[in-house]
Design a protein around this nucleic acid. Structure first.
Lengths: 212, 212
DNA sequence: GCTATTGGTAAGCTAAACTATCCATAACAA
DNA sequence: TTGTTATGGATAGTTTAGCTTACCAATAGC
């Protein structure tokens, strides 16, 4: 197919597709002549993946490029992708007192150690978790109880996630599932959490509205 | 205190504080003369909240303004905030086939109904969840099993969340806890999930590196 | 009295993610 | 064949969010 059909099939405008090609988010089509290229279903799928990572995962273009590079490696390493390549939802900017972050980091390292989690010392998620904990405390909240409860939950979820990954056909499919499941899983879990929160809140406080 | 000290105590630059004042994220200080105002600890706390919602929650300024308006209401309604005011993590843009989203919406409504969740018909989280499910399917993943597992987990987490809210002293504190816990909870859960995923992956695939 | 700071406003800046415009060439319809 | 439309590739422009800079008259504090 040519670029117009690729655009029609994905709902992405032609200029945007050209932009993604330039940015290396989409491999170039097969050139049949100096200004004619052919695209295939792989391009359609890749383009849909990019849009989902952008719109739902809210990943920046640069992060998506890195993820896709991992997908295209000849030797796909699911473990590396799960542990390192995936950016966690928390944004990178600081706004947090560095000393509070250091204290929280010790706390997270302790939690990981106590639970026997096999996680690299330099795994970015350690720092991400520490920053969120520091933020809680900067706002005057006590995360003590919540942290352990969430860690329990995280173990459960991660178990389900690895089952999900394991259901893929081959190594490449597992890598794809790890990526999609991790990024979209965050959003799915957040949305279901909101629904369950509203339910728990309705139970606890009594229902105000009656539009169920 | 005056604006310079407010800046020093929060690490937010003076021009940025002025910008937040203009945007209505921070109430004006008490004017002592036409060009002198006094700020207090409430401003410090509010400013820290804004930064956390921006940097970790990644909420846009407009959403933060709305949230803060809910905080400042004379009659704080925790249930409304939990159910409606809080934006879920998923971004607003579409990129998803509207028909697939409609099918997924039916699926979510069915799940909510079967579980007896007391959730408004028009709760935005329903749509958010539906869009994520549609995204999964657009990428060729089968969310069937995962969805039910995540719903179980969401119930557990929401229970913890409401306990967290219930630990606050008064109604205003509960509203604050609901807001902070919801937004930061998403990020904390995501970071812990990454850690647990790396652990589960290490167990499943065998450990590649040895830097623990 | 004198310098630094303040509150307030308007204009400017930066980065990210597109979008528009060109151009020479190629495909397609008449 | 011939006019019209589409294509790949490149460069420049646009939009939005979140700040920064610059400026001003008025005040603080020595």
């Amino acid at each position: 197919m040519r670029i117009a059909e690729l655009s029609r099939r994905t709902g992405v405008s032609v200029p945007t597709i050209k932009y993604y090609l330039r940015e290396g988010l989409l491999p170039a089509g097969e050139l049949t002549s100096p200004n004619q290229a052919r695209y295939d279903d792989g391009h359609v799928q890749r383009l849909r993946l990019v849009r989902v990572l952008l719109d739902i995962g809210r990943l920046p273009i640069a992060a998506i490029r890195q993820l896709l590079a991992a997908l295209d490696q000849s030797d796909p390493d699911v473990h590396q992708v799960l542990g390192r390549a995936l950016p966690s939802a928390a944004g990178g900017k600081d706004s947090i007192d560095p000393e509070a972050a250091r204290t929280a980091r010790v706390r997270i390292d302790k939690l990981v150690g106590e639970r026997g989690w096999l996680v690299g010392r330099d795994a970015p998620a350690r720092q991400a978790a520490a920053e969120v904990i520091a933020a809680f405390e900067q706002l005057g909240a006590d995360v003590g109880v919540l942290l352990e409860q969430y860690a329990d939950v995280a173990e459960t979820v991660a178990g389900h996630d690895l089952d999900f990954v394991g259901r893929a056909r081959d190594a490449e499919g597992m890598l794809y599932a790890a990526m999609v499941g991790s990024i979209l899983g965050d959003s799915l879990l957040a949305a279901l959490r909101r629904l369950a929160q509203e339910h728990e809140s309705a139970k606890k406080f009594g229902i105000r509205g009656d539009d169920f």
